[in-house]
Design a binder for these strands. Structure first.
Length: 322
DNA sequence: ATTGGTTGTTTCCCCTGCTT
DNA sequence: AAGCAGGGGAAACAACCAAT
């Protein structure tokens, strides 16, 4: 139970990982630096270190003190080529973001073969590809080069490689979802929120957020959980699949986790406490008439909330008892 | 009265990408 | 390889309805 698995990692990368290419201007040349990274709050340092270890300890760790995050990053060509890209191809992100992985794979293949060294035309082709993954890299280019990049005029010696890439993008079919992957996604871009309303009913929301390019993934998640819940637009750029139904949450989500004994590594504690609460309520259907029972429930909910403002338990009880 | 479907709001946590 | 900044996209609620 609760092991770091391939699919959990790919779910977490889908949520909190980043794949891209930086462009670096040196004295008389341009260098492309591909990277892979995954960021987390520093409190999940152990998990990030485990992931680094999982990838044979390639890459490095960067701690950002200004925002309390830890980042695991790989940008050595060989490491990306031999470890990261193959991993991401075997355990695909099951999403539109996987297209980035495919493009990066082809960029790295060309770079590994050093085709772009002393060949400005192929370098420009790589920049065309890089622009498909990260924001445009045109700032160091002259007018003529910008024209080539903007019009996507590839070097003709690599046209077969580009064709190959386009075919493999076209043929990409996301792998089936599994609970490991969804737990990773949930840990990164989802959560379980709880509260009590004024009638002392438990309210819960289990949700996962993705940006608008990943609607298919959200729909697949919905069908994975037997089509419970709904997908909402939260702003112009992202969507949220969520369920508030305690019955459906119990039947289709909790049951699955309990049966497989598989909980999210980071936020699994929320699920466990929720299981306690729901069991307690079903054993104590009269709880609303008993303040001690309500207090007990609130103290369990207190374990689930994120509590960023550092509210004390007694304050939280007071707030919800009103 | 109770559940749960839908929309809204606020606060920061990330990614992202530049620089050294 | 490491530091760092920023801005905006989400995490985490919160509120409001609609339907039994």
């Amino acid at each position: 139970m609760n092991k770091l698995t391939n699919n959990y990692i790919s779910g977490l990368i889908q949520a909190n990982g980043s794949i891209g290419i930086n462009l670096h201007k040196t004295k008389n040349s341009l260098r492309l630096i591909p990277y892979f990274n995954i960021t987390q709050n520093i409190k999940n340092k152990d998990l990030i270190l485990k992931i680094k270890h999982y990838f044979n300890d390639i890459g490095f760790i960067i701690i950002n003190k200004s925002d309390n995050t830890i980042r695991y990053q790989v940008n050595q060509l060989n490491d990306l080529h031999h470890i990261i890209i193959p991993f991401l191809l075997r355990n695909d992100l099951r999403s539109n973001k996987h297209i980035k992985v495919i493009i990066l794979k082809y960029i790295i293949n060309i770079m590994i073969d050093k085709l772009h060294i002393n060949n400005n035309s192929i370098l420009l082709s790589l920049i065309i590809l890089a622009n498909k993954i990260t924001n445009n890299h045109n700032r160091y280019l002259n007018k003529e080069q910008q024209y080539i990049v903007n019009n996507q005029i590839y070097n003709k010696d690599i046209l077969n490689i580009i064709e190959d890439m386009e075919l493999s993008i076209k043929n990409y079919k996301p792998s089936n979802l599994d609970l490991d992957y969804i737990n990773g996604l949930f840990d990164g871009k989802g959560s379980l929120s709880v509260s009590l309303n004024s009638n002392k009913d438990i309210t819960l929301t289990y949700y996962i957020i993705q940006d608008k390019n990943e609607m298919l993934l959200l729909n697949n998640i919905k069908s994975y959980f037997n089509n419970i819940g709904h997908i909402y637009n939260i702003n112009n750029t992202s969507f949220r699949w969520e369920t508030k139904s305690i019955v459906e949450f119990n039947k289709n989500i909790l049951n699955k986790m309990i049966t497989e004994d598989n909980y999210p590594l980071i936020k699994g504690y929320k699920i466990k406490h929720m299981i306690n609460v729901l069991k307690y309520i079903s054993d104590n259907k009269d709880y609303k008439k008993n303040n001690d029972k309500i207090r007990y429930i609130i103290s369990e909910l207190y374990n689930i909330i994120e509590n960023k403002k550092g509210i004390r338990l007694d304050e939280y009880i007071k707030k919800l008892m009103k």
